[in-house]
Design a protein around this nucleic acid. Structure first.
Length: 280
DNA sequence: AATCTATGCAACCGCGTTTGA
DNA sequence: CTCAAACGCGGTTGCATAGAT
């Protein structure tokens, strides 16, 4: 089913935004609020704004929003980005969510232009420092090795998590879990919901049920958080497959662990339950 | 001074997910 | 339940500018 391109309508402006366009958009949103981007151009065109909704949304989110923090990224922010990227991969919106005032686009650009090189230099100084797009001689597979794992993942919405009492967790004013000093790392089996403990890969189960065929009883938080996500993972996630990026599919297509599950689990549950933010 | 190359960033594109009729 | 529209995200592109030659 083809979707009509958002910006295909003739007569719409493209490219860099002018100051007057910014003003129109800002005034419009001040008046009507965010959202309904698709309808925005129809209404705003009366004010002379000839932009598609998608473009308006992007301009607003990345540039015009009043809470956007412009300027250099501080060292603390940089550290945080690196850590979050190691944890989350290229989930820029998630990373941006942990950095108030920063946009996903800004962080993505900052990573690609600064941190990517830094991290690459730090981790694999023996490898080429050239950017991939400027160095076509580097095979893509090799380039990917020095990059983080690709994170586009199928989202699984049906995950059975057995109810577990939530531990209270101390958070800072940003909602981030505060690392407790010297927090001892527990085995995952003690701290994560039951789907991550051994489950019988029973084909007779309902097809709608996501089978998390993971036996991580011997996996420790420190193994994951301290692991080099770029390197082949030495954690045997399933007892059958050595997974490279904490998500893998068996040759028969059996899902072993979806990344989103892992991410949600890691960020929202797992770390909190351990009371530590990248606790070591 | 002119040209080339590298860099940074804003914006676009395409695709997956969500929503609602 | 189905399907199309809308939304949101990550990857990529293109342009302006700085620095090197």
């Amino acid at each position: 089913m083809g979707r009509s391109p958002c910006c295909a309508k003739e007569g719409l402006n493209r490219g860099a935004w002018t100051a007057s366009e910014d003003k129109i958009l800002r005034d419009y949103i001040k008046l009507h609020g965010e959202g309904s981007w698709r309808n925005l151009p129809k209404k705003a065109v009366l004010a002379g704004l000839k932009r598609c909704g998608k473009s308006c949304r992007l301009r607003w989110l990345n540039y015009l929003r009043p809470d956007i923090k412009r300027g250099n990224i501080s060292h603390d922010e940089e550290e945080l980005i690196i850590r979050l990227h190691k944890l989350l991969g290229n989930r820029w919106s998630l990373i941006a969510g942990r950095l108030p005032g920063r946009t996903d686009n800004e962080i993505k650009n900052y990573w690609n232009t600064n941190l990517c090189k830094k991290v690459a230099d730090h981790h694999c100084s023996k490898k080429s420092k050239n950017k991939g797009k400027n160095n076509p001689s580097i095979p893509k597979t090799e380039m990917n090795e020095s990059q983080v794992v690709r994170t586009r993942a199928t989202r699984y919405t049906k995950v059975f998590i057995s109810p577990q009492p939530q531990k209270t967790v101390t958070t800072d004013n940003k909602g981030l879990p505060i690392a407790t000093n010297g927090s001892s790392v527990k085995p995952i089996s003690e701290s994560i919901p039951s789907p991550f403990t051994a489950q019988d890969n029973n084909p007779s189960s309902s097809d709608d049920d996501l089978m998390l065929d993971v036996n991580m009883e011997d996996v420790f938080l420190s193994d994951i958080l301290n692991s080099d996500f770029n390197a082949p993972c030495h954690v045997d996630c399933s007892g059958r497959h050595k997974c490279n990026d904490l998500s893998a599919a068996a040759p028969d297509g059996t899902l072993i662990c979806s990344r989103d599950v892992m991410e949600d689990w890691t960020v929202n549950n797992f770390l909190q339950q351990n009371g530590g933010w990248l606790a070591e």
